[in-house]
Write a protein that binds this DNA or RNA. Structure first.
Lengths: 255, 255
DNA sequence: TATTTTGTTCGTCGACAACGAACGCATATG
DNA sequence: CATATGCGTTCGTTGTCGACGAACAAAATA
């Protein structure tokens, strides 16, 4: 569970993925830069990269090492691993077209929320919310919708693991305010994010519950404060989201 | 370049990815099964998997080890790495809606064709053509469209590397027949796949050329023989594809 | 032509990947 | 209720190979 200096072994696996993540973060890199950045000998990096090239996961493109499309296969696989993920996709598209805003389906992993499907509607605001990106559960509408339906011990575990990082002035700063919010979410059935992660950006989220009573994910819609705040739009969106989640829940159970 | 017994080193990286690929192929697996399948000691597999779990790339889900959504992040990254890939996506969607068939954008990597974007239209036939899947260049419309515009040496290198695996009776079996086809593709500007990979499935493909004169990918449309064969549909589809490719080429160069 | 900076090859060494055996913990089977 | 079988996990040991530094090659810069 603890990140640094973990248990027994497997340093080389760690360096392998440190390399891969560095290639992603830098959008490709040259050998020497990688060695400097990771504090490894050039020859070590060379050796590792050559192996990854042989395996087809990395390729050299005009002097830069780059991640290859083999990762696309793995990514597409994990995205289709659970039936709920597949079934959610068309719903996200529909949410985006019907609201005109940005719609997304998230799920929880390792105590964080992960975007599994995103789609921008006609007027959607640009935001760095690419598929695969992770968010904290306490500062996103989709995350809170999920978190609210975890058993209390699990909520505590999530906070213990990740804390409550402040992203804007509106981010929940204390457990008390977060727990109050979660209680309200359970009562009314949907969550709200009022600029708790990005200034001016509001979102509404609803959980998608699995057959065993634990949430399998959440739908959410995000847009600029002034549009999301409008009463009629808000109500319509909430209804739309609740209906969508309900549809998916039925699809998951019977089909 | 040679797969087995490669050069110096890096056995553990290889086993790491063998594990990952086995988890993908088996759609999750238990420890003992993995150890048996890969011929490793249980303790070794346990050690490696624990490391991957710590790193967040693998998770344990009711007794099964499964690949985690961290791979989705890497997959989404490589899919957006080149601008051409991003720009191609809406075109694929449009192709699918306009033709009603299955449309796809592929690119070449390691001498194979990889699906980067796929979309099924209204009447699209089901086929296992998920994003990230690889095809041979000689037996797919999109692949041949790319292959035709490689310099001859590179074509030879591809055939040397991968051979000409037969998928149906119509797959090109000899270099001569393949080269004839490629010549025809260059002349008329588009490629055809007449049930060369799946019986009854026809496809049309066009290359997308990069600024340096090498193909960066291809668009293709696939459907059942009887529909794709109809003269009017064929001509319309070819025009549509050629126009789409041309648009993308302009977008890549100026924007 | 020198000089710097890159990627690559190679010999050496100590850490650690891989092993086998033993343990704990379930779920079957008598 | 014992007994047995299967699983995942822990642990000591060993030989391999990951990591290093230095030397080389190749390309870019001066």
């Amino acid at each position: 569970m603890s990140n640094p200096a973990d248990s027994r072994s497997v340093k080389s696996t760690r360096t392998t993925f440190r390399l891969i993540e560095a290639l992603e973060a830098n959008d490709g890199a040259r050998l020497t830069d990688l060695a400097d950045e990771l504090g490894l000998a050039k020859s070590t990096v060379h050796q590792q990269l050559s192996a990854l090239v042989d395996l087809g996961y990395v390729l050299k493109e005009d002097g830069q090492y780059q991640l290859g499309l083999k990762f696309l296969d793995l990514g597409a696989y994990v995205r289709t691993r659970k039936r709920a993920y597949n079934l959610a996709e068309p719903h996200v598209e529909q949410l985006a077209t019907e609201t005109g805003e940005r719609a997304q389906f998230m799920t929880e992993e390792h105590g964080q929320a992960v975007y599994v499907h995103t789609k921008q509607g006609e007027h959607a605001v640009k935001a760095d919310r690419r598929v695969g990106k992770r968010r904290y559960l306490h500062s996103s509408a989709g995350g809170k919708a999920i978190l609210a339906h975890f058993p209390e011990a699990r909520i505590e575990a999530v906070i213990d693991r990740w804390g409550l990082p402040q992203e804007t002035d509106n981010t929940h700063a204390t457990r008390e305010s977060l727990f109050e919010d979660l209680e309200a979410i359970r009562e009314r059935g949907y969550s709200m994010n009022k600029a708790e992660s990005i200034s001016g950006l509001w979102s509404v989220g609803v959980p998608v519950m699995g057959p065993e009573g634990t949430p399998v994910g959440s739908f959410s819609v995000s847009g600029p404060r002034h549009r999301m705040k409008a009463e009629q739009f808000h109500e319509e969106t909430v209804d739309l989201l609740l209906g969508t989640a309900n549809e998916l829940e039925l699809n998951i159970e019977y089909s």
